[in-house]
């Protein structure tokens, strides 16, 4: 039941991808439009056909999508938001009720996740559908804006929308190749066996450091959880959802301290025209270090 509903929702996601492919196709100004169209059609294919074809085919499709982005064939088609004047006028007319559909998504997702057996994901889908209906009634927008604005936002997110999914797949490959064991063996030489506090510190600090080097906490989570988290924290009896939640935000403490996370730290400094390009990082370092220490304490006392 849940799986059937989810499959229907994945088809809807596929439709958003196909709409994006369509609007890329009609954008004759876009130099790489065939590559862009191909990327979104392939992504739609993985959404819809995923469970119905041999997994190796999906794997090959994903590799093909990687070739398209690596060769810079996937770019943003020009989809326009409404004019400033239009937004100003309607925001005055509709006022705070514009928040209602936006909040509906989260509230429905929470209620369905908390009080039914369907789970938060089905809730997210129901929330999105109900919110769309409310928004259409409220704004009386033309139906064509459902695919149009969905594509517009998906183009803004871009190809990296699939990054979390891809990193999970990377984690699966790391696991199959035994990468976690190698890191764990290397670290077990340094870390005292069976010491929970040492494991917790290594996991939290490892997340922050790896995130600082890579500029991306999601990527660090896959690597560090396999290498340090599993052998030194989870296997010692940690509550997995508490340790998992804390590990990722420990990584975010690293994000606050690295110029590698340029879009969060360096670009804002440029936008604000600061004299020191690391100004935002300098402001964040004291809070980031304090928060990292809090993460270690919380994981040690709360997850065990």
């Amino acid at each position: 039941m849940v799986n059937t509903i989810l499959e229907i929702m994945y088809v809807l996601c596929g439709l958003v991808c196909l709409a994006t492919a369509y609007y890329s196709y009609v954008d004759t100004e876009l130099k790489t439009r065939y590559g862009t169209v191909a990327f979104w059609v392939l992504l739609a294919f993985t959404f819809v056909a995923g469970p119905h074809v041999p997994p190796a085919i999906i794997g090959a499709v994903v590799v093909l999508m990687g070739v398209l982005t690596a060769t810079k064939q996937v770019n943003i088609a020009s989809l326009m938001n409404s004019t400033d004047a239009f937004r100003e006028e309607h925001s005055l007319k509709l006022g705070n009720q514009l928040f209602i559909p936006a909040l509906t998504i989260a509230v429905v997702a929470f209620i369905v996740g908390q009080f039914t057996d369907l789970g938060g994901l089905v809730g997210l889908g129901f929330g999105a559908i109900i919110a769309t209906i409310i928004a259409m009634v409220m704004t009386k927008a033309s139906v064509k804006y459902i695919p149009y604005d969905g594509s517009r936002l998906l183009q803004q997110v871009g190809a990296v929308a699939i990054l979390p999914q891809l990193l999970a797949a990377l984690g699966a490959l790391f696991a199959a190749a035994g990468v976690g064991q190698v890191i764990a063996e290397g670290i077990s030489g340094i870390l005292p066996q069976g010491n929970i506090l040492a494991g917790v510190i290594a996991y939290c600090v490892g997340m922050a450091l790896f995130t600082m080097i890579m500029g991306n906490a999601f990527a660090a989570f896959a690597v560090i959880t396999a290498g340090i988290g599993i052998p030194f924290v989870y296997s010692q009896g940690a509550n997995p959802w508490i340790a998992g939640a804390l590990a990722l935000t420990a990584g975010y403490c690293g994000t606050l301290m690295t110029p590698m996370a340029a879009n969060f730290n360096i670009v804002p400094a440029a936008i604000l025209e600061t004299k020191n390009r690391n100004r935002v990082i300098i402001s964040q370092v004291p809070v980031a270090i304090a928060m990292l220490i809090v993460h270690i304490i919380l994981m040690y006392f709360w997850a065990f």
Binding site: S82, A102, A131, A141, Y148, R152
Partner: peptide, 13 residues
């Protein structure tokens, strides 16, 4: 992805 159309429309308005 399923939430993008409604957010896009709300931004439009």
């Amino acid at each position: 992805l399923i939430t993008l159309p409604v957010i896009g429309i709300l931004e439009r308005y």
